[in-house]
């Protein structure tokens, strides 16, 4: 879960003065496919050392953005800079500093993971094998069976080792946990956390909101090719509401919480008061402390609920 420690680190490390250290900068980027779809007029900046979550339903344009960053496809309009370099003209220099795992990972079926990883280690500026083996051991990957005999989880591990080997400055992870068992998902989360801890930048896409909330500091929401919003997860949490159940010894006054600014709704069922409160929780706790309470539950909303609350309500 989103820890307060991480939130603190976010606040101290990322001031407004870091505009010059953008690892990635998209300016009015549009890409239309002949078959329809694509992205329209996307502008986005990612700071160095940030874990950025890119959220959206399948087909919304997440993969398109990642492929544009890698120069696998070219924008119709707009400008893309990575490490201050042009995504097209300086693509090779940029890719030298990137680790990538595609959403739909293809592997050389006739080769073994050992052969595949050797190949990519060499293509990525001859990363020494001694830097690859710790990752293989950590993920407990069997590397001498042909790729075609591997399970989905093990195939993805091959892709993960290929992406994370050599500690690239920027990791582009396209739906890295999709369709994997929880154990492998946890291993991926761990790899991302460590990369972030080491000051490397992670750009990851997902259609699972809770997962992004767990790893990312900022989240971008993309829908039908449009980047709808970019929010810090802590800000989202502040704006979102909490569900509070308070049990009393006797039926409470329905107006018990009505002095709260963030109160959205309140209802009494028997001895229990159920309320939805947005914003800061401290005034709520202070108020509850004045009464004799037999039970209390405060449920934190998931990222999905946060987004829904946020975008259902018009913000001035």
């Amino acid at each position: 879960m989103w820890s307060s420690m991480k939130a603190q680190a976010l606040d101290t490390n990322r001031g407004d003065s870091l505009a010059s250290s953008h690892v990635m900068e998209l300016t009015n980027v549009s890409k239309r496919y002949r078959s329809g779809g694509g992205v329209a007029d996307v502008s986005l900046s990612i700071n160095q050392g940030e874990v950025f979550g890119f959220l959206g339903p399948n087909g919304a344009g997440k993969t398109t953005i990642i492929r544009l960053l890698l120069d696998l496809i070219r924008p119709n309009t707009g400008e893309i800079k990575l490490f201050g370099l042009d995504s097209r003209a300086d693509s090779v220099a940029i890719r030298r500093r990137i680790g990538y795992i595609p959403g739909d990972l293809g592997l050389y079926e006739r080769l073994t993971p050992r052969e595949i990883l050797t190949h990519f280690a060499y293509l990525r500026d001859k990363i020494p094998w001694s830097k690859v083996t710790p990752l293989i051991d950590e993920l407990d990957l069997e590397i001498d069976k042909p790729v075609r005999t591997l399970s989905k989880g093990n195939r993805q591990k091959v892709g993960l080792v290929a992406a994370f080997m050599g500690d690239p400055e920027l990791l582009l992870l396209d739906e890295p946990t999709s369709g994997l068992d929880p154990l492998v998902q946890q291993q991926i989360h761990e790899l991302v956390r460590r990369a972030a801890f080491e000051g490397r930048t992670v750009f990851l896409s997902s259609h699972i909101l809770s997962e992004v909330g767990e790893m990312a500091e900022r989240v971008g929401l993309i829908r039908a090719g449009q980047l709808i919003a970019v929010e810090r997860v802590v800000d989202l949490a502040k704006r979102s509401s909490h569900l509070i159940d308070i049990s009393f010894e006797s039926p409470p006054d329905p107006n018990f919480l009505s002095s709260l600014e963030g109160l959205r709704s309140a209802s009494v069922v028997g001895n229990q008061l159920r309320a939805e409160v947005s914003g800061d929780l401290n005034p709520v706790i202070a108020l509850i402390a004045t009464a004799h309470v037999t039970d209390l539950s405060i449920r934190e909303p998931g990222l999905e609920e946060m987004f829904l609350t946020f975008y259902e309500q018009p913000h001035a």
Binding site: V92, Y100, D104, L105, G106, F120, L123
Partner: peptide
């Protein structure tokens, strides 16, 4: 077609 091109072209090889 086998989708191996994505990871190949993401390496620093022109």
């Amino acid at each position: 077609e086998r989708r191996t091109i994505d990871t190949l072209l993401a390496t620093p090889v022109s």
